[in-house]
């Protein structure tokens, strides 16, 4: 289990991850890229800010980032460290409400930012991909919902 990574790497979660957009070919990715916006970042930049209103979805193309949330007394808490390939920002992407956590970069890297506008364009050019993305993210939310119900 994730608590027994004996070789002491920085804990990353790979246990219950839900895969999105699997099996797209390069040209399909190109279409997504054409309709979205890529952003380069350096280490130690705040990419998303808790409480900020912004409903874009992000795909971490390269680099490592950590998820932070401020606790009751304003101290920041590291919730997770996520690696390339991870998708984040999905909650606000769906509900348009302020960000629930901040994302800070640990290394330099690149993200792909898919705003609602981008998503609409992606959907217009290839509805299958958009559908796939929604289902994949839906599965993640369903997973969380089920497990939250148990909490």
């Amino acid at each position: 289990m994730q608590y027994f990574n004996y070789n002491q790497e920085k804990p990353t979660s790979s246990v219950n991850n839900i895969s999105v957009l699997s099996g797209l070919n390069e040209e399909e990715w190109e279409m997504i890229i054409f309709n979205s916006h890529s952003i380069d970042f350096l280490a130690d930049e705040i990419l998303l800010k808790e409480g900020e209103v912004d409903n874009a979805l992000y795909i971490l193309v390269s680099g490592k980032v950590e998820v932070l949330s401020s606790s009751l007394f304003g101290r920041e808490k590291i919730l997770a460290c996520i690696e390339e390939g991870s998708v984040f920002g999905e909650i606000s992407f769906f509900d348009n409400l302020p960000r629930t956590a901040s994302i800070r970069s640990l290394t330099a890297g690149k993200v792909l930012r898919i705003s609602h506008k981008s998503f609409d364009k992606i959907a217009a050019w290839n509805p299958k991909i958009a559908q796939q993305l929604l289902f994949d993210l839906g599965r993640l939310l369903a997973y969380r919902f089920r497990n939250k119900a148990i909490l």
Binding site: V20, W29, V61
Partner: peptide
């Protein structure tokens, strides 16, 4: 359970990240 929830991520598979990166390198 909370940490499980928080750390459960949507991810693009390892192979797919490679494809994405190479697509990006072409288009940027």
């Amino acid at each position: 359970k909370k940490s499980q929830l928080n750390s459960t991520q949507a991810v693009i598979g390892v192979g797919d990240v490679g494809t994405l990166q190479s697509a990006l390198s072409h288009t940027q």
